[in-house]
C-alpha cells in the first residue's frame, strides 16, 4: 500500500505568535516551527497501516526552507521518504492555492491512501483535505477517529457531534484524522539518525504543474486587512460571599444580559 501523509510546519502551539506589520503574514521568526500536532496523528496512523499491510509512507509538505525539519521529524518517526515543495512564490498562499499545489504533486504518483491531520493549529480551517480530494476526484473520508483497511476497501468512523458515521470507499482515497484516533509515537534515536539518510525530493511550484501566478499572496482569495494585538485582560470584580454571593452572581449575569 502506497501511503502519502501531508504535513504542515506551524509555529509552536504554546508560543506567542506575531504577524509581520509589513505584509500581515505570520512572522515565522517569532516562534519555533514544529510539526502540526494533528499531523503527528496522521503520520502515526500511516505507520500503523504500513506495519499491518506493508508498503511505503511518503511525507509531503509545502513550506519554506526550514519546513524540511518537520519532514525529517516525520521521517524519524519511521516514514520512508519525503517530498518538500519550496518556492518563494508560495509565500502567503491560501487554502485554495495550497490544495492546488498538493494535488499537483500527489496526482500520478499512485498513492492508495492520502492522509491528513484534520486541521492545522495555526490557520484552523480544516478545508485542505476536502479541497485536495475534490481536485483529485477522490472520495473524502474526513474526520476519521478510526481507519480500517480491508484490501482496496477503506472504512472509517467519522467523528460527529452525536457519535460517529461509518463511511466506506474504495482506494485511492483521501483521509483526514482527528486526535482520538491514536497515540503518536516518539521518534526513536535510531529513527532520528536514519532520517537524514532517507530520500528527500525538493520540488518547485512549476514541478507541481501549477502556475506561479496562481499561488501566493497575490492570488489569495482572502487577505488580512488589518490586525491588532489582543487588549490586556481587564481587572475582574471580586465579590466576597457574605451570604448573598449567589444573588450577586445572578445580578452580574443579568447586567451582562447573559441570563
Amino acid at each position: 500500500m502506497k501511503i502519502a501523509v501531508c504535513v504542515k510546519q506551524v509555529p509552536d502551539t504554546w508560543a506567542e505568535k506575531r504577524l509581520r506589520p509589513a505584509d500581515s503574514l505570520l512572522d515565522r521568526e517569532s516562534a519555533e516551527g514544529v510539526l502540526n500536532e494533528l499531523d503527528e496523528y496522521a503520520v502515526e496512523e500511516a505507520l500503523k497501516i504500513q506495519e499491518a499491510h506493508g508498503g511505503e509512507v511518503t511525507i509531503v509538505s509545502m513550506g519554506p526552507e526550514r519546513a524540511v525539519e518537520t519532514i525529517r521529524k516525520a521521517l524519524s518517526m519511521g516514514a520512508d521518504a519525503g517530498i518538500h515543495i519550496v518556492d518563494d512564490a508560495l509565500s502567503g498562499s491560501d487554502a485554495l492555492a495550497t490544495s492546488a499545489v498538493l494535488a499537483g504533486v500527489l496526482k500520478d504518483r499512485g498513492f492508495d491512501l492520502i492522509i491528513f491531520g484534520s486541521e492545522s493549529t495555526d490557520a484552523r480551517m480544516s478545508v485542505v483535505p476536502a479541497m485536495v480530494s475534490e481536485r483529485l476526484g477522490l472520495p473524502q473520508l474526513t474526520f476519521a477517529q478510526k481507519v480500517d483497511v480491508n484490501g482496496g476497501t477503506i472504512t472509517i468512523e467519522r467523528q460527529t457531534d452525536y457519535g460517529f458515521d461509518s463511511v466506506e470507499a474504495s482506494s485511492p482515497v483521501v483521509v483526514s484524522v482527528v486526535e482520538k484516533i491514536n497515540e503518536p509515537r516518539y521518534p526513536s534515536f535510531k529513527g532520528i539518525m536514519a532520517a537524514k539518510k532517507k530520500p528527500l525530493e525538493t520540488l518547485s511550484v512549476a514541478d507541481a504543474g501549477v502556475a506561479a501566478g496562481s499561488v501566493g499572496t497575490g492570488a489569495a482569495w482572502s487577505v488580512v486587512a488589518d490586525f491588532a494585538a489582543r487588549p490586556p485582560k481587564a481587572a475582574g470584580t471580586i465579590v466576597n460571599d457574605e451570604g448573598a454571593g449567589g444573588v450577586k452572581i445572578a445580578e452580574f449575569l443579568a447586567t451582562n444580559k447573559i441570563i
Partner: peptide
C-alpha cells in the same frame, strides 16, 4: 547539530 536538538526535544517531550 539538528540531530542533537531533535534528540533533546524527544527526551524533553517524553
Amino acid at each position: 547539530s539538528e540531530e542533537e536538538r531533535a534528540i533533546q526535544g524527544v527526551v524533553r517531550n517524553f
